[in-house]
């Protein structure tokens, strides 16, 4: 049976059981794929759980190699712009494990951690915390305006 990288929690937690997979997919509002110069997919981003409350979760994964991660970081600002411009989002969440690779680069500093689950699950044989961090539309707008100055 195929396995899913445990760091891709939304998709790995229930394995590839079809009914769970379909339910998970139904929560995804939009998605983009990042390709490398050879037109190979190396990262993907999805906007999930977008709802009437004006919140959504950004799921952002890359292949586990430094080149793919660097490419993901390079496109992170464009992905956030697309998320906030494409949907009426007040608060955008990112969930991550403490050992996840950095895919947001400097933008990670804009996010504020609101929830921390200590020792949430085991990855590669050891427990890692999981956090939920938020970026507000206002904070992101300030950042964008700072770029224009």
């Amino acid at each position: 049976m195929a396995d899913v990288d445990p760091r891709w929690w939304r998709f790995s937690r229930d394995g590839l059981e079809p009914s769970h997979l379909l339910e998970t997919a139904s929560g995804v509002a939009a998605g983009v794929i990042v390709f490398d110069e050879g037109q190979q997919p190396v990262a993907c981003a999805m906007l999930a759980d977008a709802g009437a409350s004006g919140t959504a979760t950004l799921e952002f994964f890359s292949l586990p190699d430094p080149a793919a991660q660097a490419l993901a970081r390079r496109y992170a600002p464009d992905l956030l712009v697309a998320a906030f411009d494409g949907a009426a989002i007040r608060r955008l969440y990112v969930e991550r494990f403490s050992g996840d690779p950095d895919l947001l680069g400097d933008l990670a500093d804009l996010f504020e951690i609101e929830v921390r689950y200590p020792d949430f699950t085991q990855i590669d044989g050891h427990y890692e915390d999981r956090t939920i961090a938020v970026l507000t539309a206002e904070r992101f707008q300030e950042w964008r305006e700072g770029l224009r100055r």
Binding site: A52, S53, G54, T55, R90, R91, Y93, I113, E114, V115, R116, Y117, P118, I132, V134
Partner: peptide, 20 residues
Amino acid sequence: RLGVLRERMVVGGALTDVHV
């Protein structure tokens, strides 16, 4: 309390925090 998701939900037309 593992954290508070500020203004996470709309309940009865008003934003409310969700405590974890």
